[in-house]
Design a protein around this nucleic acid. Structure first.
Lengths: 141, 141
DNA sequence: CTTGCTCCTCTAGTGACTAGAGGATGTAGC
DNA sequence: GCTACATCCTCTAGTCACTAGAGGAGCAAG
């Protein structure tokens, strides 16, 4: 007597919207769940965990294909985890890069907000700072 | 005799790809430049600066509409900059939030990479950590 | 039994590009 | 002038990860 959850309850428990859940089913990320008499999807704990896993991974910035790879590993756990490790490592590098970028940008935005003394745009730094910074067109940051 | 740049040179100088430049023109973010005899776009310094501005703003995470708003302000600089200020402030809040998220995620990814001792997936933390974390389904981050 | 909610499928739209077809133009060497 | 070859043009269609809406069926409460 496992618990049964209709899609609405699944969205409440995982934070993934119903159309998105159906979309994940459609692209094969989530297995098609059993249906009720009235043709409604009924999810169990395992599905909910899988969904939450997907949601969290998406928030981490994993792409669907990376998640698919992880889930495949999970479904077949007698494999070396070098693959999962590689995915996580690549992702880590990206996350670090993004943090660096955003921190640089934060400094700029702060300068903008601070510089804008509620005068006219002519003297407003929001645009100036953004335009000025463009001189570094090809540098990373 | 301002300098003339064909689209290829513009991409070299701004880092924005040619199709993207045309796309920006199409959606009205970049004014249609004058054309050469042979119907080629020829950009001047102002266009390049505008393009670099757009590129940089995109990197900052501004959406096209926000950029359009900023550019409109720039084109008509005798307006109060409260609007630009508001955009920058909203963006700043978002950037800060994103940095916080990413830092949390970085910690997790590091734990994953470290925890994965090149064994089998059964004992691999990449998936465990991601799944475990899902218990916080509705918390922010 | 009606009201109102949830759910179903299906198609089409979103944002911000990106890819590719098919053709015109510009430039450098012979 | 002629031939290669790069660069450019327009146009349509595809990408990713959803999101919105139409039109209809099922279910639970009063």
């Amino acid at each position: 007597m496992t618990e049964y959850f209709p899609i609405g309850e699944a969205t409440r428990r995982t934070g993934v919207k119903a159309p998105t859940i159906r979309y994940y089913e459609q692209i094969g990320l989530l297995p098609p769940p059993p249906r009720s008499e009235g043709n409604r999807r009924s999810y169990g704990d395992i599905d909910l965990r899988r969904l939450a896993f997907i949601r969290h991974a998406r928030e981490l910035g994993f792409e669907i294909d990376a998640i698919r790879a992880l889930l495949t590993l999970q479904d077949d756990p007698d494999q070396p985890c070098a693959t999962a490790d590689a995915i996580a490592k690549a992702r880590l590098a990206e996350v670090e890069q993004r943090i660096r970028s955003l921190q640089a940008l934060k400094v700029e935005l702060e300068a903008m907000v601070e510089g804008c003394s509620h005068g006219r745009v002519a003297g407003c730094r929001v645009i100036e700072v953004l335009a000025a910074h463009c001189k570094c067109a090809h540098s990373e940051h």
